[in-house]
């Protein structure tokens, strides 16, 4: 995947591993870890295909906009690739 990624803004029901406060936000892949069985299927006792897990770094400004406590502080979160799409490169 590209370095810049956007978290899907979907709001499904059920067990979900992309935190709501990061949905629709764009960050940078800090590192890609490895595939893990999809927890969103494991949670229901279903067979789970492996899904690539990325650590995505967001700035506080990326996430909270003008309300950020300190815009350059960062949040790193693990996001499954099923929740990510490539974002246009920053200008």
């Amino acid at each position: 995947m590209s370095a810049r990624v956007t978290v899907s803004a979907r709001m499904p029901i059920g067990h979900v591993r992309a935190p709501a406060y990061l949905r629709g936000k764009t960050g940078t892949i800090e590192r890609s870890i490895r595939p893990f069985p999809d927890p969103e299927r494991l949670a229901y006792g279903q067979p789970a295909t492996p899904v690539m897990l990325h650590r995505v770094r967001f700035t506080m400004a990326d996430v909270w906009g003008p309300a950020a406590e300190n815009p350059d502080d960062t949040i790193d979160a693990e996001i499954y690739e099923t929740w990510l799409s490539e974002a246009p490169d920053a200008p």
């Binding site: 893990f36 897990l53 350059d72 502080d73 949040i75 996001i79």
Partner: peptide
Amino acid sequence: MTVRVHDSTADM
């Protein structure tokens, strides 16, 4: 100093 928060959302 920059603060880096790590949200332990998944398998790590």
